[in-house]
Design a protein around this nucleic acid. Structure first.
Lengths: 333, 333
DNA sequence: TTTAGCACTGATGAAATTAAAGTGCTTAAA
DNA sequence: TTTAAGCACTTTAATTTCATCAGTGCTAAA
């Protein structure tokens, strides 16, 4: 158990390091506290014994360890009000009724990337709670036709297909069959229903069933595709801890390769706090020098995950609040 | 006018520098030619006088100047066969009939970025030659409705709109009006037709015309939006000439800001060669250290520009061939 | 328990040194 | 007239040396 002064010192060091990216010495801290640098030094040594602080070399100032950040996040951090300026920028997005929800999400995280210089990730799933509303076909010529599929929440997918050698009747029969059999089916159950219920039947009644079946199967599965958007990747270049090109390349590569693991759902919830999850260093599965803060959102239309990726030395308080704010706005919209 | 040997030396220097990114000395060249290093040195001095070569400092080897690259590209370069491996990767894309054309284009350039480590840009315009085929509405609930618009070439745009306070009759009336008046209209003429012909009429017959008009206007203009895709931007990190973070950031920023100018249409055609345009250094409007190679494609469905952005020390012969090959495949598809 | 004092450590940056790569020029040979 | 050999000269890049600075840990006194 830490004393109050130890907590205060740890907090100051974390905050100072987040601000300046330079190891924090005892002098700086003792100016903020009513005690001498020697006192601070001995407290620092204790905190280091506890594994909360680290040195970069024997005579350097202190840097928070992974456990130090964790302690700060869990016990010391206070939420930080979103500045008026930032709030305004976000409101401009959410109050714009022209924008679709998914565009709002993307744009608001783009703004977060802009104002924080971190990288943001959006993983959206449309399948949630959507059921099939209507399948339409629009013939374009003798050769081509567009299939348009709409869900009850207003998602649309389409595909242009080649229908040479298939008669319009055949196609219409198929569409009628599909419409009759699977309208109202939840999107994520469609592919199995298509496979086990529809396929046998159109196989019986329709000549070119193999080809037609594939087309429809294709359009339907598009709905269950998750979309991943990553914004502000090159912000990493602005961070002082990544000043050598080799390291930057490594991190960018890991980011590309491990996007999925960032937004992976079955990660255990580290902090219960309003469902904001914080993964520090090794916990991220990306890079030991990075932190991921993320949360899930859920509307009646779609659900997904939004995440901010930055250095361990991330402005935790600010990012947590921004994410909470965005999550609320998404869910209210 | 250059002698044959001078041409040979210039060509070797350009090729060697493209390969190694290090100033080329006379020794290396004289090993490839049947003459002494002193001879090569004096030829180099001549080429430098002509402005085709440069030195990085008094006693360094030679580097091609912008004019040197230009001379190489216009007079010395021979097309380089696409390797079997590369060809295979591209064929895998183009022979996949499941993929829409625009996905093919994107994916094939993604491959080019992968194999060359340059950045690729696709600018696609759907408006080309498309006319309006059909406007459909699908009511979802009392509040919401989806508008689906289809062109004769199979492009689809849609938008979910809030229709609270507007009767279904009103909406249907509007859609019928629009369908009657503008089906068959080329996409890029729709907005003016909508403004000057349709608006006055629905203004007369429909109550909530202001709101409805805006919705349709919105969906239609989506078609004329150009899509810009940039792939492999972080490949710049792999180039030895950009080894300092500051420079990389600068280039990435310029890339972001000037994408439009890369694919700008009214650039004059530098090389007549099969409509492949090569812009070197200053000619690019991006960055004096970069080169852009681009070409336009045109199918009966859409048209656009594909471009590769890399260092001046770019594998011109390889990239030109890859672009030509992709252009052909797009247009054949 | 706190603090002043002091010796010690490692990083950082400037200056000095050296080796390597490559040039230009002069002169002699082909 | 063209080519090549020899040599002095230039610049870079890598290495070493040195001094300075920020910051520590420890001891002893308040």
């Amino acid at each position: 158990m830490l004393t109050d002064r130890q907590k205060e010192i740890l907090k100051l060091i974390v905050m100072e390091y987040i601000k300046g990216a330079k190891p924090v010495g005892s002098n700086l801290i003792c100016e903020m506290l009513n005690c001498s640098s020697a006192t601070v030094r001995s407290e620092m040594a204790t905190l280091e014994e506890y594994g909360l602080l680290e040195k970069t070399h024997t005579s350097s100032g202190r840097v928070p360890s992974e456990e130090g950040y964790r302690y700060y996040v869990n016990n010391l951090m206070k939420p930080k009000e979103i500045s008026g300026e930032d709030m305004l920028k976000l409101q401009l997005i959410f109050s714009n009724n022209q924008l679709e929800l998914s565009d709002c999400i993307k744009k608001s995280l783009e703004i977060v990337s802009d104002i924080t210089n971190y990288t943001s990730v959006v993983l959206g799933t449309k399948s949630h709670d959507n059921t099939l509303k209507e399948v339409n076909i629009v013939p374009l010529s003798e050769k081509n036709m567009v299939v348009v599929v709409i869900t009850d929440k207003g998602f649309v997918e389409h595909k242009t297909i080649n229908v040479e050698g298939i008669s319009l009747e055949e196609i219409k029969k198929t569409v009628t069959l599909i419409n009759n059999m699977i309208i109202g089916t939840p999107i994520d159950e469609i592919s199995s229903k298509l496979e086990f219920e529809v396929k046998p039947i159109i196989g019986r009644y329709v000549k070119e069933h193999e080809r037609l079946y594939n087309v429809f199967y294709n359009v339907f599965t598009n709905f269950t595709n998750k979309s991943v958007d990553v914004m502000g990747k090159s912000n990493i270049l602005k961070l002082p801890e990544f000043s050598n090109v080799e390291k930057i390349r490594e991190v960018l590569e890991k980011l590309d390769d491990n996007i999925d693991s960032i937004v992976e759902e079955n990660k255990e919830d580290e902090t219960g706090n309003n469902n904001i999850n914080i993964y520090i260093g090794k916990e991220t599965n990306i890079d030991d020098d990075m932190t991921v803060i993320r949360t899930r959102y859920k509307t009646d239309k779609e659900e997904g995950t939004i995440a901010i990726v930055g250095p361990k030395r991330m402005e935790y308080d600010r990012v947590v609040n921004l994410l909470e704010y965005i999550k609320e706005n998404i869910e209210r919209k």
